[in-house]
Nucleic acid binder design. Structure first.
Length: 915
DNA sequence: TTGTAACAACCGCCTTTGCACACG
DNA sequence: ACGTGTGCTTTGGCGGTTGTTACA
């Protein structure tokens, strides 16, 4: 019982709020929308705390006898009561008191609202006994409350707001990257031999290696944030100190690229709060304690120092071992690997690594370092395990150093991959696959630790990188070049998902998530409605493409197809080419290996997961198999509907088409008549099934024409007007009120227009709006309606006026009667009321006189005038010693209330309403 | 330990074609 | 007598989502 009640309340609440919301929205002011949203947030917060109490008190449901509706006290106390109540007076008393405790006021509202049955309450005298037939274990059972629509809406609002904030932040950082002073300072630091000036026009990612290596050596990530500094100032101080948050370091790298006249973007993962409620949100780099709007926490935190450093140091040692034992093994490495190895072998890097190694054992001593307090928190909580793990890791790596080097050599694994690996109790290694296609060494973050995840990097446009040029991923913080395919694995390893990757340039932004996300279907559901997102990004995209765009320079040794393209009027811009690239990625996603992914996959489908109103047509081609189920393109999935449903779309089923699909009619428990119908249903299968048709079986609606002024109607004698398309040719839909009365009076054929259904009281009712008539009668009807409407309004006016006069007359009569009685039985008292009545009556007669000029003057009014004259006499005779004189100049008229205040010189005043 | 499939439970959308009675 | 307006009463099936469990 209580559950049902509460659930119905839950259902009702949003609707009333929706009303208020729609009212607010109707007013359209941004402030109000914001206030509305904030209000919701607060309500949610309040409600959340209440709910918790209610939920905790849930064992009450199993109470065998309840003498009093107990107000839920604090959890611990309730538990205490519950467990000790039987046969323990003190505990009972305690429970009794608790119920009257301070929580009462707070919870009263909830109580009032609840479905407790009324009963006699023994508050003071009787000790209360609660018998429980529950075991402590069952009370511990976790209560699951699923998110309501309201929760979902709220989560979406927060998600959107957070997205906008992060977008704005990205733009700020991007603008700071354009700061000429910062750029100039960076250039002044850059050794001359590293200027890639000659290659700016024909740039490949390889050309950037020395530059990025230098940058990586000279700028370090520190695990503190620059507080509330402006991005410009933060960048400047990071530049000065040669260290800063990962965001600042990444931004500095972008500034450096831009200083060198390279086309560069600042790229950021928007680590936004979840779109769906009840998903705990922690920023990817979870060291921060600043809340969701500060995700600029350094990603290389102490944790990284603690865990990565040993690996780094070991890899350095390993390097040395490699050098001594294996000589020039590094030369055999693939593509980007050599460069990384080169970086590692760079003396400065070695120094850096050595320094890190030196720092490593002192990490414990840094616990009190104010700069590292953020990490210390997490460090403290995990310290024991972490230390154990460090030791294990160190031992393991040192003992397997040579073997690792060998493996590395054999498998072509590069050091950059190993840098990606998070500390983990279990490190998965996939050896033997080609390293360039997928990240080989993916470690899985242990438990809740999310460390080392990239949040910021740069993209540099390398015109020589592809046939048409390419945006190259450059993570200067982690010294990774062209590692776009590793980002996702890295983020996934940190127990997070990469939902929005946005590239910023020229104050604009572009969503480049597709470049970094290999499994789009997994993140699609975690992203906000694409229409909204696209509309938000649309202006920013223009700015971005304006800043980074430019005509793509196609290489000279291109294929003939590309040449043909060149000859076309279509001139590919960098932006459009990138769009094509990203689109291509979208269309070439590999087949998921688990069935459930096909449920809502945008590209692929398996028959098993189609809904009952879906069908494969044509059934092929088969793109592959998943657990034995053939996989079809999503484009083959067609929606099928009943004839009636298609009618609403203005389509009808072609003649001689068989249903594409038939569904068994759901058995509805209907009234007694069904018993009779049962026999028929058993015999006739066709009645039982719902026939569904697909789009390919349809043609435009071909309704019968209106002939001889007769409207073609359906079997209910009406026309279903779902849209204009549903109107029979030659007819029009007239929506004015009482149209049917006009049509009926003029004897014009019409049909009621049913425009939809209203669902209430557990059943649906047709909603009618206006009539459908033949087009030739439209004008006649409109004219007649206008006439009738005018006549009706005039009648209404007349009626209202007559009624007003009647009421005035009634009022005055009563006053006069009262006065007459006063005069008769209390001669000396001269009431002011009489004067008032006199005055009002004067006014009335004036108004009536004015009205008499009007054509609306009725015999009734004349009659009234006569009566007024009589009245006048009676009133004037009664006023003897002073006759009030209301001079024009003493009058005042209130235009708002239409009240005229008349004043006599004796001080008497009276207010009259002008008619 | 992790990933997957199957299942259960829950939420919310979609469903869709009066009737009796009072009053003017 | 007739037309008009009002209030009655408060479904249940299905898809989507999420949590649980068993199993590989």
């Amino acid at each position: 019982m209580p559950r049902r009640g509460s659930s119905s309340r839950q259902k009702k609440r949003p609707s009333s709020e929706d009303e208020t919301k729609s009212q607010h929205n109707a007013e359209g002011s941004l402030t109000e929308i914001s206030r509305d949203a904030v209000g919701k947030l607060l309500r949610r917060a309040n409600r959340g705390s209440k709910k918790k109490t209610t939920v905790d008190f849930e064992p009450e449901q199993n109470v065998t006898r309840v003498l009093e509706p107990i107000v839920p006290p604090k959890t611990s106390e309730v538990e205490h009561c519950n467990r000790n109540s039987i046969g323990k007076d003190s505990a009972e008393e305690k429970c009794g008191h608790v119920s009257l405790d301070e929580g009462y006021a707070d919870k009263k509202e909830e109580l009032d609202d609840s479905d407790w049955e009324d009963g006699t309450v023994a508050m003071d005298d009787l000790p209360m006994t609660i018998e429980l037939n529950v075991t402590p274990d069952s009370s511990v059972k976790k209560q699951i409350r699923r998110a309501s629509a309201e929760d979902k809406e709220l989560a979406e609002l927060v998600h959107k707001a957070h997205l906008l904030c992060l977008l704005a932040r990205g733009r700020l950082i991007d603008r700071a990257c354009d700061d000429v002073l910062i750029q100039a300072s960076l250039l002044s630091l850059l050794p001359v031999d590293l200027f890639p000036q000659s290659k700016v026009t024909k740039l490949t990612s390889k050309d950037l290696h020395p530059l990025i290596s230098w940058f990586h050596d000279n700028f370090h990530v520190k695990n503190y944030t620059n507080g509330e500094k402006s991005p410009h100032f933060a960048l400047a101080s990071a530049l000065e100190l040669h260290e800063g948050s990962s965001e600042e370091i990444a931004a500095l790298s972008v500034a450096l690229f831009r200083a060198l006249n390279l086309t560069a973007r600042f790229v950021s993962i928007l680590d936004v709060s979840p779109l769906k409620p009840d998903q705990s949100f922690r920023p990817i780099a979870s060291g921060s304690s600043k809340g969701i709007f500060n995700t600029s926490t350094p990603m290389v935190s102490k944790q990284k120092l603690d865990f990565k450093s040993p690996k780094k140091s070991l890899s350095c040692k390993r390097e040395k071992l490699c050098e001594s034992s294996l000589g020039h093994s590094r030369k055999s490495k693939k593509r980007s690997a050599p460069s990384d190895m080169d970086q590692s072998k760079d003396p400065s890097v070695a120094e850096d690594l050595d320094r890190t190694v030196a720092n490593f054992p002192t990490s414990e001593a840094q616990v009190n370092d104010p700069e590292s307090h953020i990490t210390d928190k997490s460090h403290k909580s995990k310290r024991k395990g972490d230390l154990e793990f460090e030791m294990q890791m160190e031992m393991a790596l040192s003992t397997t150093a040579i073997e690792c080097a060998k493996t590395k050599e054999e498998s072509g694994e590069n050091i950059e991959s190993s840098k990606f690996s998070c500390p983990s109790k279990r490190i998965k290694r996939v050896i033997g696959e080609e390293s360039s296609t997928s990240p080989q060494l993916i470690s899985t973050a242990v438990g809740s630790m999310r460390v080392g995840s990239p949040l910021y990097w740069a993209e540099v446009y390398c015109s020589e990188e592809n046939l048409t040029g390419k945006w190259v991923h450059i993570d200067a913080v982690n010294l990774i070049i062209d590692g776009e395919d590793k980002v996702e694995a890295m983020v996934a390893a940190c127990k997070s998902s990469l939902r929005y990757v946005v590239a910023f340039a020229g104050q604009g932004a572009k969503d480049v998530t597709r470049r970094y996300c290999m499994k789009w279907h997994k993140i699609a559901s975690q992203r906000v409605n694409s229409t909204w997102w696209d509309s938000v990004l649309a202006p920013l995209r223009n700015l971005e493409s304006g800043a980074t765009g430019g005509v793509a320079h196609l290489r000279t040794n291109q294929s003939t197809a590309t040449e043909a393209n060149m000859n076309d009027s279509f001139v590919p811009t960098r932006s459009s080419l990138e769009d094509i690239e990203l689109e291509t990625r979208a269309l070439t996603e590999p087949l998921p290996t688990n069935q459930q992914a096909y449920k809502s996959h945008p590209l692929y489908a398996i028959e098993k997961w189609l809904t009952k109103y879906q069908l494969l047509h044509p059934k092929g081609p088969i793109l592959g198999f998943c657990s034995g189920h053939p996989v079809y393109p999503r484009t083959c999935v067609q929606t099928v509907m009943t004839k009636e449903r298609w009618l609403r779309e203005g389509l009808q089923v072609k003649p001689n088409e068989n249903p594409a699909k038939e569904l068994k009619r759901p058995i509805k428990p209907q009234k007694v008549q069904d018993f009779e119908a049962d026999d028929r249903d058993c015999t006739t299968d066709s009645k039982e099934n719902i026939k569904l048709y697909g789009k390919w079986q349809l043609e435009p609606l071909n309704l019968p024409h209106a002939v001889n002024g007769i409207v073609p109607k359906n079997d209910r004698g009406q026309v279903d007007v779902w849209s204009e398309k549903c109107l029979p040719p030659g007819t029009v839909h007239l929506r004015f009120p009482r149209a049917y009365t006009v049509a009926k009076r003029l004897e014009i054929d019409y049909a009621p227009a049913m425009v939809g259904f209203e669902f209430k009281n557990g059943r649906s009712y047709p909603v009618y709006d206006g009539i459908v008539v033949c087009a030739e009668f439209k004008d006649t009807l409109l004219e007649a309606f206008a006439e009738e409407d005018e006549r009706r309004k005039a009648e209404e006016k007349k009626r209202d006026e007559a009624q007003a006069l009647r009421r005035w007359y009634q009022l005055l009569s009563s006053i006069v009667t009262r006065q007459r009685l006063n005069n008769r039985y209390n001669n000396n008292s001269k009431s002011e009321v009489a004067n008032a009545a006199q005055d009002m009556k004067d006014n009335m007669s004036n108004a009536t006189v004015c009205g008499s000029n009007d054509q609306n003057q009725t015999p009734e009014n004349h009659q009234m005038d006569n009566r007024d004259t009589n009245l006048d006499e009676s009133v004037s005779t009664s006023v003897k010693d002073h006759e009030h004189v209301f001079l024009k100049e003493n009058e005042s008229f209130d235009e708002e209330t239409f009240l005229l205040t008349k004043r006599c010189q004796c001080g008497f005043s009276v207010q009259v309403e002008e008619l």
